[in-house]
């Protein structure tokens, strides 16, 4: 098993944004267990309010936060990029087209992951981005 964090790793602060409560709870538990400080949000505006009042090292956001057709995750990528040049941002989506994936990178996403993804894979990408930031 890959060692995701060493004792000397800094204590990163991350924000997880998804409208599925169970997914949010699972990711919070997983990343909290890795030693990260984890905040969570379920809506675009809740995430934006947190971004306005806190500093995050990494934001992991689902593309779709309002049901069919939503692409709120793209707005979160833009907001993160506007506020913190150094923060990392990962977009997750079960519905991502090549066009949306391209746009997410244009807006400044560091990774675009297609769901379903095992928690371990999301964590590996996260650690890699954080350790190389």
């Amino acid at each position: 098993m890959m060692v995701l964090r060493s004792e000397s790793s800094p204590r990163y602060r991350i924000l997880i944004v998804d409208d599925e409560e169970l997914i949010v709870q699972a990711m919070k538990k997983y990343f909290g267990g890795l030693g990260y400080d984890v905040d969570t949000a379920f809506e675009l505006e809740e995430a934006q309010a947190l971004l306005a009042n806190n500093c995050y090292d990494l934001v992991i956001a689902d593309l779709r936060l309002t049901g069919v057709g939503g692409v709120e995750g793209l707005q979160i990528v833009s907001d993160v990029r506007q506020r913190y040049a150094g923060a990392r941002v990962i977009l997750l989506s079960a519905y991502g087209t090549a066009e949306i994936e391209r746009e997410s990178y244009q807006r400044g996403a560091d990774a675009f992951l297609h769901k379903p993804k095992a928690m371990m894979e999301i964590a590996q990408v996260s650690v890699s981005l954080l350790e190389n930031s």
């Binding site: 905040d39 969570t40 505006e45 934006q48 309010a49 947190l50 306005a52 009042n53």
Partner: peptide, 16 residues
Amino acid sequence: TNFEKAPVLFDYVRLK
């Protein structure tokens, strides 16, 4: 909740 903190609460409410 996140809204226990007044700045987050009112930023959220304004965004809505």
